[in-house]
Design a protein around this nucleic acid. Structure first.
Lengths: 377, 377
DNA sequence: TGGGGTTTTTTCGCATTCGAATAAAAAGCC
DNA sequence: GGCTTTTTATTCGAATGCGAAAAAACCCCA
C-alpha cells in the first residue's frame, strides 16, 4: 500500500471536476489535466477512492500499451443543490455527485414577496429536494436576479422584490444549511449551465442572450465569466435603441428586445392587448411567421449580436429564455441578418443557436456553481 | 549561508516583476504578492541578489517592528527592447532592468514597404538601441498593427503593408536576435503600457480608446487583456454607425470617429480639403472650439463609450492617439455627454481621460510585454 | 540601559511533490 | 510462446517548499 499523505483540498476538488466532466478519465490523463505529476496524481486518486468519491470502472484499451483504468465519480457520494428564483417563482434542482440531474422542485411566490420570504422558501425547496437525493448535501448554488456581488456573497439589487437590497444571501443560507453557498447572477449561472449540461461543453468563448422581462447578456471569455468591475457586465438593457424600421427614438434595448416586447412586435395587431398567459406558447405559435415585423425583430437582434461580436469576439451566441420557442429558424434569420448588416461578420463563424436547456437552465447553472466550488473536507 | 536550491524560472521572473512594479518592496511583501511562504521567498531573493538581478537598497522603517530591507532591481542587469510599427514608421525604445525608459529610436519607412524590409529595419533599430544600453538584451516586445495571433507569434494581417499576411514574426526575429520575442497587437500593447508607465498603474479594469486611421479599442478585464477567440476583440471600427446629428446612414465607426474624420468634423468648412501635415497640431488648435460640430463629435464618442461601458463594465477609458491633443476638456465633454445620453451611467464612476503617454505608447507597451515575459535563464 | 511589543527575516526539520526508473498490462510480430 | 514495442501506473529516493519557532532589528517607555 502507498503511504497516506495529507493532500490539498483544492486539488482534490479540481480532480473530481476533471473526472466528472469527462475531461480526464484515467490517472495519467488526470495528471495532464491538473498539471501535476503522475506519481502525485496516483496518491490523490487513491485518497479519493478511499473516501468513496471516485471509483474504478473497468479498463479502456487504447490502440496500444497498457489500458487505462477508468475513473468515475461515485454518484451517491452526495449531492448538490441549484436554486434560481425571480419575483414569481423559485426553481430548484438536485444533482448527484456524478453531475446527473435527479430531482426538480418549483415553488410559486406570492405577489409582492419580500426577501425574507424568498429565503425561507429556498430553504423549503432544498429540504424537499433532500428527500429524494442520496447522501449528504455538499453545497448549494444560487442564481440570483439583478445585481450580484458574487465574491462577497451579497445580492445587491433586484427591482421586482421590494426590499431586495444588499441581502447577505450567503450568510443567511450558509448559517442555516451548514454547507458552502455560492452566489451568482442568474444569467451568468446559465452560462455555466451551458458548460455542464448544454452546448458550451467544449467551448471557451460564448455569449448567453437572455431576453426575459428585460434584456441582458452573460459573456464567457477564455473559460471565465466576465463579471465587470461593478458586477454589471452584460447589463445592456438600457442601451439607447432606435428600432430598426421603426420611428420611435429615445427607447432602450429592454423595450425593443425583451421577451414580451418581441412577442408584441411579432404579433402585430394581435399584440396590442394584454400579454398572453402562456408567453412561451404564444411565441412558439409565431415561430413560422414572416413579414416585415419578423424581419425587423431579426434585424434588431442581429445588430445587437453583431456589435457584441465585434467587441468581445466570441463567436457562439446561445439564446435563452422564452424566445427559444421561436426555434432554429429565428436564430438562422438573425445570423443571416447580422451578416448582411455587417459583412465583416461573414466567415468569422458567427452563429446564434437556441439553448437545448429548458426552463430550469438557471437552476442547473446554480448547481454547476455548487459543483465547481466544492472540495472534500 | 543558506542552502542554494534550484529555483523555478517562472517564479523568479514573477518576483522581479513585483519588485520592479513596486507592488512588493521587501521579502515579506514579496512573499504575499507571490503567494509563497516567506522562507521560500528568502531563498529566491538570495538567488536573485547573487545573480545580480536585485539588490538591497536600505531600510524602510514602518510604524513599529523590524524595518523591511528594501529590494530594488539592478538597473544595469540588462535591458528590454520595445518596438512598434505601422506602415509609416518604426518606433523603438530601450528600457533598463529597473523599468526606466532610457533610449528611443524612430525610423521612417518608405512608401509601399514590404514585410521583409520592416523586419530588417526593426533589427536595425534594436541594434541602434543596443549601442546606448547597458548589459545584455534580455527580450524584445513587438507591437504589431492589424490582426495578431499573440500566442503563435504570427502577424496575421495588416491592410497597409501589402504582403503582411501570416508573417511568422517571432520566428524571424527570434532566430536573428537569440532572445525571446513577444508579439502583441499594438493597441493591446498600449494597454500594457498604461499599466507600467501610465495611468493604469493600480487599475485592473480599463479600456484603451485608439482612434487613429481607424478606430479600435483594447479592453483590460481583471488585469487581463481580452484577446477574443479569433484575435479580433475590440475591432469595432466596422460597426454600422449613424452619425449623431448627421443624416448619412450606412456608415461605419471608422468613418465617424477616426482621427482624420474627427478633425474633419471639428474643422467644419476648413476640413473639406486635404488632411494637414501635422494632424496632432491641427487637433490641438481645435481643443478650445465649440458649437454643434464639437457637440456632435462628443455625442458620438459618448455613445460608443456608453455602449462599451454597459457591456464590459470597466469604468475608466483612456484616450490615445492624436485625439489626446484635444485635451481634458474634450474628455470631460464626452463623459458628460455619455451621462446625459444614458442616465444609468451617472454614479458608476465613468470617466474618460487622455493618456499621459506620448506618441511612443505603443513601443513602451511592447517593452512592457518584454518585461512581463522575461525570466532568468 | 534594559525590557516589552511588534514586525521582518532566517533557521531548521519535516513531508509533499517531483523525476526517473521500474513494474505492469496489453498489442503486434515472428 | 516469447520477443519487442507502447502506454499506463507505481515505487522510491531526492529535494523543494512549507510551518513553526527562533532570531534580528527597530520602537517606545521607564
Amino acid at each position: 500500500m502507498r503511504k497516506n499523505p495529507i493532500v490539498q483540498r483544492e486539488t482534490l476538488g479540481a480532480a473530481v471536476l476533471q473526472i466528472r466532466s469527462g475531461r480526464a478519465t484515467s490517472r495519467t490523463t488526470l495528471a495532464k489535466a491538473l498539471g501535476i505529476s503522475p506519481s502525485t496524481t496516483g496518491l490523490y486518486v487513491d485518497h479519493l477512492i478511499a473516501e468513496r468519491y471516485l471509483n474504478e470502472s473497468g479498463l479502456n484499451q487504447g490502440p496500444m500499451g497498457r489500458p487505462r483504468r477508468l475513473l468515475t465519480t461515485q454518484a451517491d457520494a452526495g449531492w448538490f443543490a441549484g436554486v434560481e428564483f425571480n419575483a414569481q417563482r423559485i426553481q430548484a434542482v438536485g444533482v448527484d455527485f456524478s453531475g446527473t440531474l435527479k430531482s426538480t422542485v418549483e415553488t410559486l411566490l406570492p405577489a409582492d414577496v419580500l426577501a425574507e420570504q424568498v429565503m425561507k422558501s429556498i430553504l423549503c425547496c432544498v429540504a424537499k429536494l433532500a428527500e429524494t437525493m442520496q447522501g449528504p448535501l455538499l453545497s448549494v448554488g444560487l442564481g440570483v436576479p439583478g445585481l450580484v456581488d458574487a465574491h462577497a456573497g451579497v445580492g445587491l439589487y433586484y427591482a421586482f422584490i421590494a426590499d431586495w437590497k444588499q441581502v447577505p444571501v450567503v450568510e443567511i443560507l450558509g448559517s442555516k444549511l451548514n454547507v458552502p453557498v455560492i452566489l451568482q447572477n442568474n444569467l451568468r449561472a446559465i452560462a455555466l449551465a451551458e458548460r455542464w449540461f448544454g452546448i458550451g461543453h467544449g467551448l471557451n468563448d460564448y455569449v448567453i442572450l437572455g431576453p426575459r422581462s428585460g434584456f441582458g447578456v452573460a459573456m464567457v471569455q477564455n473559460g471565465r465569466v466576465i463579471e465587470g468591475a461593478h458586477h454589471v457586465a452584460g447589463e445592456i438593457g438600457r442601451w439607447p435603441w432606435p428600432l430598426t424600421g421603426g420611428a420611435d427614438g429615445g427607447q432602450e434595448l429592454h423595450h425593443a428586445l425583451s421577451a414580451p416586447a418581441t412577442w408584441r412586435r411579432l404579433a402585430g395587431e394581435g399584440g396590442k392587448g394584454a400579454l398572453p398567459e402562456d408567453l412561451r406558447g404564444a411565441l412558439a405559435a409565431l415561430a413560422d411567421s414572416s413579414g416585415p415585423e419578423w424581419d425587423a425583430v431579426c434585424a434588431d437582434y442581429a445588430r445587437v449580436i453583431g456589435l457584441l461580436h465585434m467587441i468581445i469576439d466570441t463567436g457562439v451566441f446561445i439564446l435563452h429564455g422564452p424566445l427559444t420557442m421561436l426555434g432554429e429558424r429565428f436564430c438562422h434569420s438573425v445570423t443571416e441578418a447580422a451578416c448582411s448588416l455587417m459583412p465583416v461578420l461573414r466567415g468569422v463563424g458567427l452563429q446564434v443557436v437556441p439553448s437545448t436547456l429548458g426552463d430550469n437552465a438557471g437552476a442547473l447553472g446554480a448547481a454547476s456553481q455548487a459543483m465547481e466550488a466544492w472540495a472534500p473536507a
